[in-house]
Amino acid sequence: MKIKSLLVTAAAGAMVAGAAAADPVNLRIQTHHAAETPLGRHITQWADDVNVMSGGDITVEMFFSSSVVGSVETWDAAVNGILDCDATGAAYQTGKNPAFQFLGDIMGGYDTPWQQYSWLYQGGGYEDAQELYNAYNMQLIGWSLFGQESMSSSRPIAGPADLEGWKFRSPPGMETEIFEKLGASPIVMDFTDIFTALETGVIDGADASALANNVAMGLYDIVGHASFPGFHSMPSDHLACNKDVWDGLTEQQQRIMEVAWQKLSLQLTLYMDVANAEAAAQLTADGIVLHDWSAEDRAMFRSMAQEAWADWATRSPEAAALVDSHVEYMTVLGLIN
């Protein structure tokens, strides 16, 4: 027993020594979300988790509200060493490769965030995504999902007919094409410009985020309508790091960041389930009109989205591969035939 105790003590000492040998790292990370939003608060907690679990070997310097570069430029800033990691989303990078659309926002695809997470971790999505990220010298760490987004508007948006001539902020990518076919006038602009554009009447509405996030941004201080529950868009924000930076971390440091981000993902999605329901109740009490599209209108939108998937699948081999992967997995889940 004495020999066994000595061996255990020696092994524990070696583990501590190994952990202490890791070089301290400071990671500069930008997100387009404000610090006071749900994701902003959860990222702050993630940074603290990473610091505590690493014994202080990893510190995170967060830049909120795209304060260093524009949201769409965050990726390049990480690739070029201005930042270390990008906490925005893949859909901002569709100009580099259309395949990023199907890692950022499938549009009209999965019904719940849990289904979309399961594609990443159980449906082979993580491996497919990593191959694309690595081609641009980036490493995907994980996703965070708010659930279905809600559109905000200064006028009713009760169904497809109300979209005719509707000027709204849209993220770049496939969404602009789908909504143009529905008669809307999407305007691509930075996430941080939405409030001012609504306030000045440059746009009638916005596809910004989930309902509770839209409340936190103050959008319903300006406009009186929203779509809820959402159906059109469920974007995945990501954490992606410069691959050289990532490869320079120890395996222990990498595992800490990955596991801590999975905690963030779980906690954020659970939080948003409740926060969106509470926001809907409060907005209704405040006189904001929530529009729930009919099953027929939702089915029509999903059909148009699938036509867009097929078109985008022709634009690069990587896009085709990701569309095939999503369709195969959605078929397994019974979401499409």
Rank of each mutant, 00 (worst) to 15 (best):
F146R: 14
M151W: 09
E199Q: 14
V188K: 08
Q130T: 15
Y136W: 13
G173K: 05
I187K: 01
L132W: 08
T196Y: 08
F179H: 02
A158E: 09
E180R: 14
Y126D: 13
Y136P: 03
E180Q: 13
I194G: 01
R169N: 03
G124W: 14
G173R: 04
E175R: 12
L145G: 04
Y136R: 12
G142V: 09
A184E: 01
L198H: 05
E149D: 14
E164W: 05
E127G: 10
A158F: 11
T192F: 04
L145A: 07
I178P: 01
G142Y: 07
A158K: 03
S152L: 06
I194N: 04
E164R: 11
S144T: 11
R155H: 05
L182W: 03
A184R: 00
Y133P: 04
Q139I: 15
S144V: 14
F179D: 00
L182I: 02
G159K: 08
E177Y: 07
A184C: 03
E177D: 10
Y136V: 06
S153I: 04
A184V: 02
F179Q: 00
W143V: 05
A129V: 13
I157Q: 01
D162R: 00
F191N: 03
L132A: 10
A135W: 12
E164S: 12
E127K: 11
E127C: 08
S153M: 04
A161S: 11
W166G: 00
P186K: 00
V188L: 07
D193W: 02
G124I: 12
I157E: 00
T192S: 10
G142L: 11
A158R: 05
E177L: 11
P171N: 05
A135R: 13
L145H: 07
N137S: 15
A184N: 02
S144A: 15
F179S: 00
T192D: 05
S152Q: 11
N137A: 15
R155I: 12
Y133N: 07
S152K: 01
T192V: 09
Y126L: 15
S185Q: 10
N134K: 15
S154Q: 09
T176N: 07
F168Q: 01
T176M: 10
S152A: 15
S144Q: 12
G165D: 05
E127S: 13
G183D: 04
T200M: 13
D128I: 08
W143I: 10
G124K: 14
Y136F: 13
D193M: 06
Q139Y: 14
N137H: 15
G159I: 02
F179Y: 08
E175I: 09
P186H: 01
A184M: 02
E149W: 11
A161T: 08
E127I: 06
A158G: 12
F195I: 06
P160F: 13
G183Y: 05
P186M: 02
E199F: 10
M138L: 15
E177S: 09
L132V: 09
E175N: 10
L182K: 00
K167R: 14
M138V: 13
G165K: 08
F191D: 01
A135H: 13
W166R: 02
E131T: 14
E131Q: 15
M174A: 11
F179T: 00
